[in-house]
């Protein structure tokens, strides 16, 4: 949106209800467009400018801080029911610049740019000296833990074979020596008990995603795995909203920028259904 130097702008209070309304519309936009990682929630509005635009519209220019929640973006749980990731869990924040057009009382996003970053190790240590920090997602222990956990989950499942979508979070725990991982999965057209060659399995046309948490504990002469997956209701084949223009919402997982990303074609732009099923 061109914002000419001669146009007038207002600088309302950052906690003004209308400013907050714009910020919440921006957060909704993030959570419905981000393809990886976790939903974010509004933490603070840093700056706001309101440009008067002719005819009949205003452009809100916002800088906002967000915080990662524990809800994966594929989880249909409403944001209001998602818990903010606490400092002791190694919190992650997002910094976003937005421009939103307000017309007829409705906000629409015309520009967005977000970056996410984990809290510093020093800050985590201040509140919890022994808490594990986020680990790189391509760490060999992390990759191994996810592999073992997903294999264990499929071995116990009587339904579809689930394949990995993304590793979204990992921590290496020193005592007892263990690896904690969180990852997203998707159902395929193979049966879990009959999938001899997972490479031949295809994602279902009606996508069904799940989210898993697992701990792999090292033991003398072996290892133990504990995995819990929540499988969400299948997603309908409704057309998904697509990002338009030069938007760049990128609140990706934080620890490892080189970890393999899932094909965006396999992921929805928005979660459309409710009601998790725990397996």
């Amino acid at each position: 949106v061109p914002v000419g130097p001669t146009l007038a702008y207002d600088e309302p209070n950052c906690d003004d209800p209308e400013t907050e309304q714009a910020a919440l519309a921006a957060v909704d936009y993030i959570n419905s467009h981000v393809l990886r990682g976790y939903k974010h929630t509004l933490n603070q509005i840093d700056k706001v400018k309101v440009w008067l635009q002719q005819p009949g519209g205003q452009v809100f220019e916002l800088e906002i801080d967000t915080l990662e929640t524990t809800c994966h973006v594929l989880d249909p749980t409403p944001l209001a029911n998602c818990t903010v990731r606490q400092l002791v869990e190694h919190a992650v924040e997002g910094d976003c610049d937005f421009r939103l057009l307000k017309q007829d009382g409705q906000f629409s996003v015309v520009f967005s740019k977000c970056d996410s970053s984990p809290d510093s190790a020093e800050d985590v240590r201040k509140v919890c000296p022994d808490c594990p920090l986020l680990a790189p997602l391509n760490d060999t222990k992390v990759v191994h833990a996810v592999d073992v956990a997903l294999t264990a989950f499929n071995a116990q499942s009587n339904g579809s074979y689930f394949q990995l979508v993304e590793v979204s979070r990992a921590q290496l725990v020193p005592l007892p020596p263990s690896t904690y991982v969180e990852f997203a999965v998707a159902a395929t057209d193979c049966a879990a008990q009959e999938a001899t060659d997972p490479a031949q399995c295809n994602l279902l046309a009606e996508k069904q995603y799940g989210f898993c948490k697992a701990t792999l504990t090292e033991k003398v002469g072996g290892e133990d795995v504990a995995v819990t997956c929540t499988v969400f209701q299948p997603q309908s084949l409704l057309p998904q909203p697509q990002p338009d223009g030069p938007d760049a919402v990128a609140l990706a997982p934080v620890a490892d920028p080189v970890a393999p990303a899932p094909s965006p074609a396999d992921l929805p732009a928005a979660a459309l259904v409710v009601g998790p099923m725990v397996v």
Binding site: T41, N43, Q44, D46, K47, L87
Partner: peptide, 27 residues
């Protein structure tokens, strides 16, 4: 005729309109 004297505003607390409130904690 009673004239209300003008009220001269003294130096009050400075209101910082931005940034806004922190909803959870600062990272």
């Amino acid at each position: 005729k009673v004239v209300q004297p003008g009220i001269v505003a003294g130096p009050g607390p400075v209101v910082r309109p931005c940034p806004g409130r922190i909803r959870y904690f600062k990272v």
